[in-house]
Write a protein that binds this DNA or RNA. Structure first.
Lengths: 230, 230
DNA sequence: GCATTTTGTCAACATATGTTCACTGAAATG
DNA sequence: CATTTCAGTGAACATATGTTGACAAAATGC
């Protein structure tokens, strides 16, 4: 007969307000996701972190993991979804900012970078597992980014930007922009924190790249591509 | 007293021509590198593959690893160097192709894609560990890509492309191009092999993106950036 | 208020990992 | 030819991992 002294459910988050059972479950679920995100943030890539590491970081016993996910792959997918949500929120934010007539690019970039710095783990995860990671996760991210691209293209259509172009072309442009964005996010998050000068340079470079892309986009003619195709 | 029957050095590659001792050593070293590259090619990202897996794939006992590398990190760096060499070779190839006056972009892209398909493991590794991977490896790749960018910018200067622009601007443009290239490589290598139609589409999209970048590059004015900076 | 779910814990397992050490046998050295 | 060097072997270690099963106790359902 064992005596348990330290068995008052052990897992009580600092902000544990949810009193229901399902609420508490979701709480530790988020704990696990958060733990994985945190682990990924300092160097480790997702496929290299172990189930036990995650539970350790989350302050939970390894077996508790299975109450929430079948395996690490499933957690990975949930993670991707979370990152996707962050990206959508970002898009909504930029959209809300309206269409400042002057220097729209610099403005949007500023919002974007602010967002990146506010959610470093999400962006690092997205950038890092997009081409690396497990095939499952990679595919999931590809989908998520695809949705994002389409959404952005639709936005541009709505504000009437290059409304003469077919959807394909708009999406092509947007994907170029988003690639550049994710790339910049990764670069910026990797900077040593004590080098603000480097950050400024990188930021200016980033802005230039986006500006250049839109410079090209303004010149883009559907016939250009078509004429070269045949 | 143990009897050894199967101990004729066990490790003899198919194309084992090198007869010297150092030669044979370098041979198994390459075996290890090759094994790692192969493992990475089917899904696993570098930090997730184990020392033992590598030696297993290389057909060598685990302890033999230490005769060549201190640890996996060191092997990772060697791997990056190898990928860098491949990239340089590619650049030389494109350079050798000269400056076809018409449709230079389509031409270069063709050479590039051919190269990517010929060395899928190198490109997958580069693309995948660039943002993911261990910090050490990531930094190494960043350096390698940086060299590549500078080299390419210098090339463009030599052929007189936009010779009016400062070096910064040229490098900014090149880094945009290279990002797009690495991105496309990753996308293309992830395609299911039985979907040539998808490959064509992706390829056309890739060409369009590069074309758009150069369209922007032709319009780029140093003053544009400058005027917005102040 | 009792029975039932259900979230999390504990103990234990088979297996995989990185690393050590002493060894072998062929190439290099003299 | 005798000696030394050293790339590769084999056995063994401590440790870490994923996963199972039985159990505790709090929330839920009746």
């Amino acid at each position: 007969m064992r005596v348990r002294k330290k068995s008052e459910s052990a897992v009580v988050g600092p902000e544990a307000q949810g009193t229901g059972r399902g609420a508490r479950k979701q709480m530790t679920r988020e704990r696990l996701l958060d733990a994985a995100l945190t682990l990924m943030n300092d160097g480790h890539s997702f496929p290299s972190i172990s189930l036990r590491e995650v539970t350790r970081e989350a302050g939970v016993v390894p077996t508790a993991f299975y109450r929430h996910f079948r395996d690490m792959d499933e957690l990975g997918l949930a993670l991707v979804e979370e990152c996707g949500l962050t990206l959508r929120r970002l898009l909504r934010e930029v959209r809300k900012a309206g269409v400042p007539t002057t220097d729209i690019i610099r403005h949007s970039v500023a919002i974007y970078l602010q967002y990146v710095r506010a959610n470093p783990r999400h962006f690092r995860t997205a950038a890092s597992e997009r081409h690396g990671g497990s095939p499952t996760m990679r595919q999931a991210i590809r989908n998520e980014v695809g949705h994002f691209i389409r959404e952005m293209a639709q936005d541009m259509r709505l504000i009437g930007y290059r409304s003469d172009l077919p959807t394909d072309a708009l999406e092509m442009i947007c994907s170029l922009v988003i690639n550049t964005m994710l790339n910049a996010a990764s670069d910026i998050l990797d900077l040593p924190a004590d080098q603000p000068q480097l950050a400024r340079e990188l930021e200016e470079n980033f802005i230039s790249q986006i500006r250049l892309v839109f410079l090209g986009a303004e010149q883009w003619r559907a016939e250009t591509a078509a004429s070269h195709k045949r």
